[in-house]
């Protein structure tokens, strides 16, 4: 089973929910931090990292002696990675999305070859409840989806996989949510929280994934998010109050379930409800 934890707005509590649920389940969990631009789940679950590898994505390199400036590569690239300027050919590898189109259309043998652009680090290790994987994007790299995909390659479908997704509703979060069994949306009852939640819900609907809501800091703001959940038929699976003790634990890099063990049962219950909804969805289709 693969659960992705997403939100739309940043800072609503995705990592709090993902890490606390993972640890509450006790064993056999794989926690994957896909927020590779600013991974922070490791701060709370303190994994022992056992493997670390640098990952690359393919970008074109052009042999100027073999290139005939036919422009086929430049024409097919929708990201304008390859430009013909007068009698020279230029590449902008930082814009490349590694589709391989340029190499496929090039009529000259060996004029374009694939070389690597460093994306960052992929690290794997163990923590209290099982295996831990995350990506750390190279500083200066602008594109996170290729590294997120590398983190996701470490999923083991027969285990409980919990993905801590990046915020937003664009390519990085879609990459983290796609083909998961359930999307757990974490929101807060503020206008910003609700605004971005709506965008995220629209995206999840397009992807056709069952989803439910956790309302964090549930005793602040207003009740617009509950009304929205009602109209959208979004199940509210958990509410977490705006509690100083939770904030203090967080600020020390501690889990809620460590400082307040009474939450352990609530996170286990959250997982059971997700499992149930996900099964119901499968049977419905």
């Amino acid at each position: 089973m693969i659960i992705s934890v997403a939100s739309g707005k940043g800072g609503t509590g995705k990592t709090t929910v993902a890490t606390n649920m993972a640890v509450s389940l006790g064993a056999g969990v794989r926690l994957l931090d896909c927020d590779v631009e600013e991974p922070n789940a490791h701060l709370f679950v303190s994994p022992v990292i056992e493997q670390s590898e640098t990952v690359f994505t393919a970008v074109p390199e052009i042999d100027k002696d073999k290139c005939t400036l036919c422009r086929k590569c430049s024409d097919i690239c929708r990201f304008n990675v390859i430009a013909i300027a007068g009698k020279t050919i230029l590449t902008f590898p930082e814009l490349c999305h590694s589709c391989g189109g340029c190499i496929a259309v090039c009529p000259e043998e060996g004029a374009i070859t694939e070389v690597g652009r460093e994306l960052g680090l992929l690290e794997q290790g163990v923590f209290d409840a099982g295996d831990f994987v995350h990506g750390r994007m190279r500083i200066g790299e602008a594109m996170s989806p290729p590294l997120i995909k590398k983190v996701r390659e470490r999923i083991k479908p027969d285990q409980i996989n919990i993905i801590d997704a990046p915020p937003g509703t664009s390519c990085p979060v879609i990459t983290a949510m796609k083909d998961t069994d359930f999307v757990l949306m974490v929101t807060e009852p503020t206008p910003f929280g609700l605004h971005d939640l709506k965008l995220a819900v629209e995206a999840v609907k397009l992807l056709g994934i069952p989803h439910g809501l956790v309302i964090n800091r549930s005793d602040m703001g207003n009740d617009d998010v509950w009304q929205y959940a009602r109209t959208e038929n979004l199940p509210i699976l958990m509410e977490i109050p705006f509690d100083r003790a939770i904030a203090e634990a967080y600020s020390r890099g501690r889990l809620m379930v460590e400082s307040m063990p009474e939450w352990k049962g609530k996170f286990q219950e959250l997982f059971r409800r997700i499992e149930k909804l996900s099964k119901a969805w499968e049977n419905r289709n």
């Binding site: 990201f79 013909i84 300027a85 902008f92 814009l95």
Partner: peptide, 16 residues
């Protein structure tokens, strides 16, 4: 309305 690399594309055109 280019997705990305409008400057590169326009520059190539001007170069041509």
């Amino acid at each position: 309305n280019a997705f990305k690399g409008a400057g590169i594309q326009a520059a190539a055109k001007v170069g041509d």
